[in-house]
Design a protein around this nucleic acid. Structure first.
Lengths: 106, 106
DNA sequence: AATTTGCGAAACCAATTGGTTGCTCATATA
DNA sequence: TATATGAGCAACCAATTGGTTTCGCAAATT
């Protein structure tokens, strides 16, 4: 199963899980209390997150803590960079336009 | 059908379409030449992109040009901001650590 | 006026998704 | 030692997805 960070992040429950474990590592059971679905459903989401290395596990006795691998999030940021360049470019054009108007006034 | 920008961006073909029309507005037929699927399949992707306002249409005779609404991409950027804060925070901690080491040396 | 072209909509299809319940296993706890 | 608890796995299910082909319509072209 080809996993992809964009697909991983597409699901709202998965995004909520990411936000939760960004703060602190959590077990599947602890995570499940935050949602209206079963631990098994949460576990499935965690498996998907694990498959694209967004998440790391750490066994502690019979509990398994899931930690966010925050560096992986940068992949999205990098993809976004090309568009950021464009929308910032537009701001620059606007700035230029505004300063042109300003110069005309003065 | 509840459309969501994260789900829209989850599909690789859709990401490719976004990248193409970021440069210049294109018709479904023109877009389809870039992919191994039919125009209708591309049209479906465009419909999804339109449903979450990532794309705007402009009819020109019998052709329909699709334009990227780049500002919508900022929604992803904003979501990412909370995590960027964390990973940049780590860099700050690293910087602090490095400067501490440096101070010890000198 | 007849034909070609660009497009969206609909019907259909196989594969995937997100969820469930039921199971087993290993670790804590009584 | 017996029992309760945390977790992964498998089987199953309905809904969604990404694709197809077929169709009809409107705008160009002949």
């Amino acid at each position: 199963m080809r996993r992809d960070i964009f697909q991983a992040v597409a699901d709202p429950t998965r995004r909520a899980i990411i936000a939760l474990i960004a703060v602190q590592a959590m077990t599947p059971n602890a995570l499940a209390t935050h949602f209206a679905s079963t631990r098994q459903a949460v576990s499935k989401h965690l498996r998907i997150l694990t498959e694209c290395d967004l998440v790391k596990t750490e066994q502690q006795g019979r509990e398994i803590y899931y930690t966010l691998q925050i560096e992986k999030m940068k992949a999205i940021d990098e993809w976004l960079a090309q568009f950021r360049k464009i929308w910032e470019g537009r701001f620059e054009q606007l700035d230029h336009l505004l300063s042109t108007i300003k110069n005309k006034k003065s």
